[in-house]
Design a protein around this nucleic acid. Structure first.
Lengths: 286, 286
DNA sequence: CGGGCAATTGAAATACATCAAGGCGTGTGG
DNA sequence: CCACACGCCTTGATGTATTTCAATTGCCCG
């Protein structure tokens, strides 16, 4: 039987600016965002690891497409620096990136690590709306409405970049094509939310869990150049439960079945899809 | 025991242009949309009843705010005609307004009646994402992405106005303030979808049903000048089931309890909230 | 070494689904 | 105009998926 009980790697916290006050303070480096000249120039950057994976992710990052590679991108790697100030932050696992009640004037974008966006009820029940991976904007709508009651929490250690809402907004609203892309992004988020509602309302536990695994698998694959059946999987079963509307106990049982049936294997902090076809069948995929 | 078994009024179909081909054909009146000069000038209009309720709804219609009352609205009733051609359609209950596979070049807006927007699985299971009342845009995102797999179906007889996507889009993208309002609308839709996910994933049947009733009550109230505890309620229990992720049978049982407990009464095609406080308590409201 | 979180497992409880039968209102066709 | 079929709602009996409760283990961390 595989072991699900290993914890994520110990986060090596370097700087954390949240919790010490919402306003841009503490040891954070304020820089001008510029698109990396494609992967592979790891060193040179002042920041640590996070910057590296941020760079890697940049080429797939929606913000990269939206901001960095926005206009003059026909020829190839020609990119523009974005005239929007941003600051880089690092936060340990399990800490809040965005408080549900906080009226932040910043729009955070994940650079490395996993985070989640959820809505909670006063009595503790909660629903995870989406998992955030490098390149994901924390609530696209937060550009307009400062907050929608979502709590955004780090799952692993997370580095993220905070853009000032007003500046970013001004920049975006000045360019019609970027604006349309932004609109499209928001619309995709809405579509995913609708699909989530369908899953939660009309699918059984095994379907929901299998679908979550497949969705995450695709999401991870989209950000890496190589397509592999094994990928980083830092979620606790509690996260799966909150994402699928189930109980941790039940998640454990269903996940156990999936593993015993030889479809997936979860070990340490990775997940391997062993039998894609079967898993897709269970998931009623597409 | 109250009677739930009465049917909605027999629809008097006048013109229906869907089903006879997606392209603007049949007996439809193409006109230029202009805002009514506030309620109470019922006659004069060439069209039938539908136009009347459309006029009434106009002052609350998001499109009205978005398009008609868009720019010069400070003084009061001063409004502009919208330079976007549209055509008025009437469709009987239970018919599709938008096919999930259809790549329509029109954006429909409900003028009178109730409709619903849902996603369906091949095996018949389906989830209603939202109910559409007069003034509602059928999928705001449809301005950008032609379709998101939603089926839009008339619940009662419905009249709606079809705007040509390209023209409407061009008009909207030319005005930054309208665009922002549109953005806000889409964001609100996303927020509602998230809330729906929370409800479906984390609330029990009675909560879900009570919440649906309260939400609909507010939605109806928002479009009428007088606030009353009794309102038009053309939904079959099957709709409630598909909106709450339950079975019609179970909806019947829970609804029966709510009625026996004296919280609501459903008779004919109306719903009355008898005990708001209790209903809100069951619904875990706000 | 002790405490706490995560996962597993089994037994019992419960919320909801499924199945089946009956009533009622409405539309339809003879 | 009646008979009948059909859709909708109700109700009870039964089945099942999922939750709740509880006990146990392993692991990480202080």
């Amino acid at each position: 039987m595989t072991n699900l009980a290993t914890r994520p790697p110990k986060p090596v916290v370097e700087t954390s600016s949240f919790g010490g006050g919402g306003i841009l303070g503490g040891q954070t480096a304020t820089i001008i965002a510029s698109a990396g000249t494609q992967p592979a120039d790891d060193s040179k950057m002042a920041a640590t690891m996070c910057a590296v994976s941020c760079d890697r992710a940049c080429s797939l990052c929606p913000v990269h497409n939206l901001l960095c590679g926005g206009l003059g991108r026909d020829g190839g790697a020609e990119m523009q620096a974005v005239p929007v100030a941003s600051s880089l932050h690092t936060i340990p696992a399990r800490r809040l990136i965005l408080h549900p009640k906080e009226w932040s004037e910043y729009v955070p974008i994940v650079c490395s690590g996993w985070a989640m966006s959820s809505i909670a009820l006063p009595d503790g029940r909660r629903q995870i709306i989406s998992f955030l991976l490098p390149g994901d904007i924390v609530s696209i709508g937060s550009l307009i409405a400062p907050l929608s009651g979502h709590a955004v929490e780090a799952i692993t250690e997370v580095t993220y970049r905070k853009f000032k809402r007003d500046e970013l907004k001004e920049f975006l609203f000045a360019r019609a094509d970027l604006l349309e892309r932004l609109f499209k992004l928001l619309n995709e988020a809405k579509t995913r939310a609708d699909q989530l509602a369908l899953d939660l309302g009309r699918r059984r536990a095994d379907e929901r869990i299998a679908r979550l695994i497949l969705r995450l698998s695709e999401k991870v694959a989209r950000r890496s150049t190589v397509r592999t059946q094994t990928f980083d999987f830092p979620l606790r079963q509690r996260h799966i439960a909150d994402a699928t509307g189930l109980t941790p106990v039940h998640v454990s049982k269903v996940l156990g079945e999936l593993q015993r049936a030889g479809m997936v294997e979860i070990g340490g902090r990775t997940l391997t899809i062993l039998n894609t076809a079967e898993l897709q069948r269970v998931a009623d995929w597409r």
